[in-house]
Amino acid sequence: MSLFGYTRAGREPGGPRPPSPLLWIALIALIAGGLVLAFAWLAGWIGRDRVTAQTFTDAIEATGPPQPGFRRAHTKGVCVSGVFQGTPEGAALSSARVFRQRQVPVLGRLSIGGGDPHGADNKARVRSMALQLVSDDGQEWRMAMNSFPFFAVPTAEAFLEQTRAGMPDPATGKPDPAKMAAVLEKYPSARAFQQWAKTAPWSNSWANTAYNGVNTFRFTAADGSHRFVRWSMRPQAPFEDMTPEQRAQSDDDFLSEEFAQRLAQGPVRWDMWVTIANDGDPVNDPSQVWPEDRRQVKAGTLTLSSMQPQATGACRDLNYDPLILPSGVAGTDDPILAARSAVYSQSFNRREREIASGKAPAATGKEGAR
């Protein structure tokens, strides 16, 4: 008896009729075709209205002129380095090694919002901080934080809708106000974010800005207990608002120049504060702010001591994916968190290909691929 229980001469006496070779060919073709369609669907080659990393990155690119070799968002920035020192209180919340190691090396990036690599610092509403912590057991923790206190929209679909509303109309070269008005009408959190952008003071330094990880993560302690948390890097330097002169100045790079002057006088520090959710707090919606009375724990201190141009610095080729996490820290089902991770990866791959193929500007001076 051969494969499938049939002899070369045909079926066994009284046995079932063997399947037709054409049937097997058709079945194999169906399976292969299904795999191809599944791959194309995941890759975003079909179903273009789906929220995929490809369609999302395409939408971000369409909001401005092409900038090959640069990050698609938070494009302008500098590389920074230093150390992180955890606290016993942080170690009690999470088993992550970074809270127990005496000092953890940090490679980071300070940046401004927007997609212009040569944008004016005093015109950018958002300041950002990204960090890579590598503990002595080889585990990595990457963070991506911003100066806003909450996210503008609750879902990945809404995020894509908001991004597309910022795309310029071919007829005018500017975004269509009606499309953005529709987003604001549809999402109350987008209106609240707009209000924050209009009324909150603008910091005059990266050093005195608080950076918030608006997404929720799960900390697991050594005893197996877990808590949902959000964290912030709060500056030890006192907050100072931008002066009218700084708002009007023509120096596009005053943030990096000011930060370099601070570092010349000594390291710059932030304290990491972890806010712990109560039962019922929204953990999968970064557009919702938790009540101010939630328990807060100082989990560590970040010290930055040096700065390098991102065109030639070590942070240039680093993807600050917020879902690269150590043991003791895990993501949640927050759809914005998943979208950020996927789009960061897509953006990273595109700019690395552009750099490798020579499409990016030469890394000279303040210019060059980031």
Rank of each mutant, 00 (worst) to 15 (best):
S2E: 12
Y6K: 02
Y6F: 15
Y6I: 03
T7L: 06
R11G: 03
R11S: 04
E12N: 11
G14C: 05
L23K: 13
W24C: 07
I25G: 12
A29C: 13
I31L: 14
L37D: 01
L42Q: 13
G44L: 09
R48N: 07
T55G: 10
T57A: 14
A59Q: 07
E61K: 14
E61M: 10
T63P: 01
T63F: 03
Q67M: 13
P68D: 12
G69C: 12
G69R: 04
F70Q: 15
R71W: 14
G86S: 11
E89K: 12
L93R: 02
S95T: 07
A96F: 01
R97A: 11
V98P: 01
R102L: 03
R102I: 03
R102C: 00
G108V: 05
R109K: 15
G114D: 05
N122A: 01
K123R: 15
V126D: 09
S128I: 09
S128E: 11
Q132V: 08
V134G: 00
D137C: 09
E140M: 14
A144R: 10
M145A: 10
M145V: 11
F148A: 14
A152G: 11
A156V: 09
E157S: 14
F159G: 01
L160H: 08
T163E: 12
A165H: 03
M167P: 00
P168M: 05
P170E: 09
T172G: 09
P177D: 04
P177I: 12
A178S: 13
M180V: 08
Y187A: 02
A190H: 06
A190G: 04
Q195N: 15
Q195M: 11
A197N: 10
S205P: 02
W206A: 03
W206T: 05
A207P: 02
A210F: 00
Y211P: 02
N212F: 15
G213F: 04
T216E: 01
A222K: 11
R227V: 10
P238H: 07
E240K: 13
M242G: 00
Q246A: 08
A248G: 14
Q249R: 01
S250W: 09
D253A: 15
S256P: 02
E257G: 12
F259V: 04
R269M: 14
W273N: 06
D279A: 14
N284F: 02
D285A: 08
D285Q: 05
D285F: 01
S287Q: 03
V289Q: 14
W290F: 06
E292M: 08
D293Q: 14
R294N: 15
V297W: 06
A299S: 10
T303S: 15
M307K: 07
A311L: 04
A311T: 05
D321M: 03
L323D: 07
I324C: 00
I324Y: 05
L325R: 05
L325F: 05
P326E: 09
T332L: 06
D333G: 15
L337H: 04
L337F: 05
A339F: 06
R340Q: 10
S345F: 10
R350M: 13
R351F: 12
G358L: 07
P361W: 10
A363H: 04
T364K: 13
G368N: 05
